[in-house]
Nucleic acid binder design. Sequence first.
DNA 1: GGCAGATACTTAACATGTTAAATGAATGGA
DNA 2: TCCATTCATTTAACATGTTAAGTATCTGCC
Lengths: 172, 172
Amino acid sequence: MVKRPADPANGDASAARQVPMRDFSRSLPMSLLRAREAVMRQFRPSLREHGLTEQQWRILRALAAIEAAEVTELARTAFLLGPSLSRILRDLEARNLIERRTAKTDQRRSMVSISREGVKLMASVAPSSEAIYAEITQRFGARKLAELQEMLGELEQSLAGLGGGDGPGAEE
Amino acid sequence: MVKRPADPANGDASAARQVPMRDFSRSLPMSLLRAREAVMRQFRPSLREHGLTEQQWRILRALAAIEAAEVTELARTAFLLGPSLSRILRDLEARNLIERRTAKTDQRRSMVSISREGVKLMASVAPSSEAIYAEITQRFGARKLAELQEMLGELEQSLAGLGGGDGPGAEE
DNA sequence: GGCAGATACTTAACATGTTAAATGAATGGA
DNA sequence: TCCATTCATTTAACATGTTAAGTATCTGCC
């Protein structure tokens, strides 16, 4: 592990970049990316066996929890952008894992809900998923995991209402 | 916002899912995803103004730091999968931001390096990028940020050598 | 020398991320 | 009532994530 706040390890090229700039492998986005990848790597094989991608699984879980929801609400809950969600719902509907019907009061809105088959699929995946989560919790430590999530939440909060604008799932 | 750890609000459907399953918006992958998105949302507009995506920027930074590298090494450093990197390098080369030449000792390997133009582009983006990072650090707190990164690193470590296999950047 | 297997990289194919534009439907006022 | 505006969702277009397959090259062993 190279640890150098401003190490001119190569004398000449470093002249071009005035600011040394944090060793980029330690940047916050990279740390978050690597950590998330390490976690997801545990889940993907199991999901894959059941023919589900990570995002499809997120949607099913969200639907199972809230029973029925409009697309926009679902996007916010599952933290997906509209276009992604739109595509995935199309596929999930074709596989009969979800059901859709347009709201009576507003023809623009469509109510999405998980189907009986969807529930069955979830039931077949959940045990493995829970086991993996338990393993992760045990390895990392339940307390530390709680702390980490707390900090992640705070980070999100401290950046809320800064640049950018709408994230996945639109505004409110 | 419905908040119910195990609310049988619907008597029948909940019977199918034996385990209530963590409120999925609090799952570790989601926390990491949301946190990362909150951070990246700050950077994307600036990068976009300079015609760079997040990944292209990662590659340029990595190249600026290590001078020249084989594709595989670069993939590991920038935490990208081979195919993604391959495509991006093709584009960056077309834009003359990087240079490529096959190694003399091994015709399979190609050495990638940042071009003079690439260095200039980096120099034009870096100030804004640094300013954003500084703002984030200030908002969240430098100490907490360090703690967070420490925990993220530990999480990654504690999951190293578990299921899955090679992540972005291959094994070693 | 020659060939089986390993390596480095690229291509291919499909799914999602991301932004912009399009479509269809509701709403508020002239 | 009609229309400009807004809203919910989808489609489009391009870039990346992800896995599998392909290509060219190298290596070790015969």
